[in-house]
Simulated assay, not measured.
Amino acid sequence: MNHETAHILLVDDEPNILKSLGRILKNHSITIANSGAEALAQALAINFDIVISDYRMPEMDGITFLEKFMAMQPDAIRIIVTGYADLEAAQNAINTLGVFRFINKPWNNLEIINAVEKGLELKRILQENKALADQVRQQQARLNEQEAIIKALEAEEPGITKVNWAPDGSIILDESELDDDIKF
């Protein structure tokens, strides 16, 4: 996913922060929001790969916003940026919201770029895992269906599913099991 354009939602009440993040992530499709409420409205219209939210915003803080956002788009990778080093809040966000990264302001641009790249990689892996799990469930359902058919056939005609193969691939018939009216 590194070479694909990701849909990223940037949420911060400071326009300069949004501009700065937008410049850093200019290779992606960026949507900006000045508040949690505005960001939630955007999330109704657009599916995002990543959301980067400020931790402290008026009206709705980053944690409240991300809780609501997560209910709408649980597969989006969540990143919080903050100017406040609040370890307890960071731990809470990581544990309850599955926040992928907690980045302090001012940040190093490479830190943001790396967090986005690693977040996109995680999202791709999680999507692949989900697709593989779905495929396994489908295959298991088919196997269960085939097993039920085989059991039904065996119940109706015991031994019908047992085939005696010859080394050349032909089927060996046991003449003692043949009906009397079938003779060779």
Rank of each mutant, 00 (worst) to 15 (best):
R142C: 00
L21Y: 03
D179I: 14
V51K: 08
R78P: 03
F184Y: 07
D174L: 08
I63Q: 09
E59C: 06
N108F: 02
Q127N: 12
N2T: 15
E177R: 15
I52N: 09
Y84H: 10
N92R: 15
A131V: 05
A133H: 06
D75K: 10
I182N: 05
K19Q: 05
H28Q: 09
Q127H: 08
D13A: 03
K183D: 07
D174K: 11
K183M: 06
D181F: 13
L97D: 01
E59A: 13
A93N: 07
T5C: 08
R101V: 01
A43G: 10
L40R: 15
A133E: 08
T31A: 07
L110W: 02
N2Y: 15
A152F: 03
G62F: 04
L44R: 11
E156Y: 11
A148V: 01
H3R: 14
E67L: 02
F184M: 02
D75F: 07
A6G: 15
I113P: 00
E38H: 14
I160T: 05
F102T: 04
A133G: 02
I150D: 10
E117T: 08
D168G: 07
N109Y: 01
N104K: 12
V99C: 10
F65L: 10
Q146R: 14
I149K: 15
A90I: 03
A71P: 08
P158M: 00
A37W: 03
I30T: 08
D12K: 14
I171R: 12
H7N: 15
L126W: 04
R56Q: 15
T64D: 11
E156R: 14
A115R: 06
E38R: 14
L173F: 15
Q135S: 10
I94R: 08
V163F: 13
I50T: 12
S20Y: 01
E38C: 08
A89H: 11
A148H: 06
P15L: 03
A93E: 05
N47R: 14
Q139Y: 06
E177I: 13
E156A: 13
I30Y: 06
I160M: 07
D174F: 09
F102A: 02
E38L: 12
S35F: 06
A39R: 12
L122S: 03
D134F: 11
D61N: 15
Q91D: 13
I77W: 00
F184C: 01
